[in-house]
């Protein structure tokens, strides 16, 4: 797997029905790639909005995947259909500003139950990279580390401690 070679950053939006233990299964990849990979489990792929994809791009993801349940297997009947259309709309928006629409990719799992999310993600990352790094680099990707470092109580000697559960800005 050449995830470290290409140096790209990835965002994975996926229906959590695909992997009931996704919270555990994705940790190894998160540990391996750090801020270069971000997973966003969704209650249904139909919850995705074009804005989520745009914001992922804005905050440094070079490639964004949306992984949905197979056709006619969505437990909300047409969530995967809606997701496909919203990804297509987001692709038109970035094509309008001269970016490669392939930066957003919509996929359906081949069957349910699907392989664990980290296996799916690794297979996708192992594919030949079809997009280039974003022209403005990945400076935003480093920001979350800084926010997390500041949240450590040791850094606040004598200062007001941060609120509990204060976390980096989330896309969803």
């Amino acid at each position: 797997m050449n995830t470290k070679k290409d140096g790209l950053s990835y965002a994975f939006f996926f229906c959590q029905q695909l992997d009931a233990a996704q919270d555990l299964n994705r940790r190894s990849l998160e540990k391996e790639l750090g801020p270069r990979i971000r997973f966003f489990p969704l209650p249904c792929s139909g919850r995705i909005e074009s804005l989520h994809l745009m914001r992922a791009l804005e905050t440094g993801a070079d490639k964004v995947y949306v992984i949905a349940c197979p056709e006619r297997a969505c437990r909300h009947r047409e969530g995967n259909t809606r997701a496909r259309k919203r990804v297509a709309f987001a692709q038109r928006l970035i094509a309008e500003i001269g970016l490669d629409p392939d930066r957003f990719e919509f996929l359906v799992a081949s069957a349910l139950p699907s392989p664990y999310i980290d296996k799916v993600a690794r297979e996708l990352l192992a594919r030949e990279s079809q997009v280039d790094p974003l022209p403005w680099g990945n400076k935003e990707r480093e920001a979350p580390k800084e926010i997390l470092r500041k949240e450590k109580r040791d850094d606040y000697r004598g200062e007001k401690a941060p609120r509990r559960n204060q976390r980096e800005h989330r896309l969803l």
Binding site: E49, S50, L51, M54, R55, L57, E58, L93, I94, E96, I97, G98, L99, P135, W136
Partner: peptide, 19 residues
């Protein structure tokens, strides 16, 4: 509100792309 956010995001990305 949604469309406003979309347009704003599009314009920001476009600005970044063009420096």
């Amino acid at each position: 509100e949604k469309e406003t956010a979309l347009l704003a995001s599009q314009l920001r990305i476009d600005a970044k792309k063009e420096g």
